[in-house]
């Protein structure tokens, strides 16, 4: 009977963070998102003016020291509105994506692990949902449920469910064939136990990446729905809504549209950069040459 000195303790999470920290763009994305988080939480306090108080004499003022982003057609401070709207956008994004994450991942796990007709039935249904153009489907759902921020979250959640189901199922199909799943069956573990304990943790990588990319899409969708008047209702500020209101003033007050637009672009970019970075960091092929000892040596 033998045993040797333990190798130094190395955690996988730290490996992933190590690779991620070397990806400069992903770090930029992460920092921007952290700032956005702060803005979302403390928007009201950070805002120099009230986001909803109208001030008709000051309407359509170009950017200045008192109003760095200018004012809109009712004299409201655009910087304040952009800051406060961050909360709504992120909130809609997170809740909608949380919804599609929960439903989609569950469907993907069940379909992928049990296979056969369970798989066929669930995934064909997902394909049907997926077949509609995303924004049209969301509009259709809102037409049924009625406009409003809560329904917008539900609609966006439904629209992005199939992506999670697909991504999850794809990974489950390969994990299902791993020996450790078979080993777990060989000791008598039940299907649900195996799914929760072995399959789910091992398919988290692609799901995390998909979550970050979907957040970007969900925020865009919310902007689009609010632009169409189906999401956030006035007078609450929302980036999409502000864009819609700016439509009639493009020629006279460019700042009305540019700043909320930039907010959307920056947010979406940040999520995408982080998502790409996570994808690279979670990919085991990123491991350095020497760590695959025995393979090359």
């Amino acid at each position: 009977m033998t045993d040797v000195a333990l190798p130094p303790h190395r955690s996988r999470t730290r490996d992933v963070l190590g690779v991620l920290s070397k990806n400069r763009l992903a770090i930029v994305g992460l920092v921007v998102l952290l700032l956005l988080g702060v803005v979302a939480l403390f928007g009201e306090w950070l805002a120099p003016h009230s986001p909803t108080r109208t001030n008709i004499p000051n309407r359509l003022e170009p950017p200045s020291l008192t109003h760095p982003f200018g004012t809109d057609e009712l004299g409201r401070d655009i910087l304040s509105r952009v800051l406060v709207a961050a909360r709504v956008s992120l909130q809609v994004g997170f809740i909608a994506v949380g919804l599609s994450l929960a439903v989609g991942v569950t469907i993907g796990l069940v379909a992928g692990y049990y296979g056969r007709f369970v798989d066929t039935a669930l995934m064909r249904f997902m394909d049907m949902v997926f077949a509609f153009p995303a924004i049209l489907l969301a509009i259709a759902i809102l037409a049924v449920l009625g406009p409003g921020i809560r329904n917008a979250m539900i609609a966006i959640g439904i629209v992005y469910t199939p992506i999670f189901a697909r991504v999850t199922r794809g990974s489950v199909l390969s994990v299902r064939e791993e020996d450790y799943v078979r080993a777990s069956r060989s000791v008598g573990a039940s299907g649900p136990r195996i799914i929760v304990r072995h399959v789910l943790p091992n398919v988290m990588g692609p799901i995390i990446v998909q979550t970050s990319l979907s957040l970007a899409f969900a925020i865009l969708s919310e902007a689009a729905l609010s632009f169409l008047g189906l999401g956030v209702q006035p007078p609450d500020p929302a980036w999409g809504r502000m864009l819609a209101e700016a439509r009639g003033f493009v020629r006279v007050a460019w700042w009305m549209g540019v700043f909320p637009g930039l907010a959307i672009v920056v947010t979406v970019m940040a999520f995408n950069l982080l998502g790409d970075g996570l994808r690279d960091a979670l990919d085991p092929r990123q491991k350095s040459v020497i760590e695959s000892r025995g393979h090359l040596l």
Binding site: R12, E178, D179, Y180, R182, A183, S184, S186, V187, G188, A189, S190, R193, R197, H198, P201, N202
Partner: peptide
């Protein structure tokens, strides 16, 4: 019980050694 060929793929990479060895104990 079964012992598998590939000790790299037959142990769940996300579980500690203790959790792997006690899984049969949990199940039964």
């Amino acid at each position: 019980a079964m012992v598998f060929q590939d000790p790299y793929s037959s142990l769940d990479p996300r579980l500690s050694v203790g959790a792997i060895v006690s899984e049969p104990l949990d199940v039964h």
